[in-house]
Amino acid sequence: MSTLTNVRIAAVGDIHLGEDVRGEYRKRLEGIEERADVLMLAGDLTRHGTLEEGRLVADELRDLPVTTVAVLGNHDYHSDQQDAIAGELRDAGVIVLNDDGVVIECGGTKLGVVGGKGFGGGFAGKCASEFGEREIKDFVAHTRSIAEAWKVALKEMQADRRVVLSHYSPVKETLHGEPLEIYPFLGSYLLAEAVDTVGAELILHGHAHKGSEKGLTPGGIRVRNVALPVLGKAYAVYCLD
């Protein structure tokens, strides 16, 4: 029987690095190995999603002393260079999730991380559905297929503890502070529903710069919005006790 050890997760999203701040974020990561076992990045690592910015982010995160897992965000998709950006990050030693999972050894505990960009659609009772025009159906179907992929990845994962990493939000509590009118573009309850079905200990997301840090899924899983402007610090650290 495996005994669970504490796992310390450093997390941040929406670092939006650009040439004018080169080297700044890396400085903030100094000593991270004293504070955390793993760093998770919740998307929007770039501003415009160009390959140049992707390379800059890769340089900033290269060979960190802790395992680093990232997902991309909508900004990282803007220039249609998301695959190349993911490639640059992987070359720099970052694990990039794209609706799949990875198991990391953390002091004898197998930490499973499932995730990807996620997508929007809104929250139960006030959301888009697969009805009407093709464009709306495609929009909702995109989120639904992502949620399904996460569910499968979580189910298949052989891990002691499970965490989900997303860019878009699975719940509306962590959007508190954002205008209600844009909630459907900030996340989808389908993401939470998928994770609640299989189970996880924590869901991390970014995207909502004006949102709030803490929320819960309907199934009681802790959700944390780690967008940099929400945290106001280089990263947050969550200890799974």
Binding site: E24, Y25, R28, G232, A234, V237, Y238, C239, D241
Partner: peptide, 14 residues
């Protein structure tokens, strides 16, 4: 302009 400060207190999720 958000000044990115040092990471603060850890949160324990038990």
């Amino acid at each position: 302009v958000v000044v990115v400060s040092e990471p603060g207190e850890d949160e324990h999720l038990d």
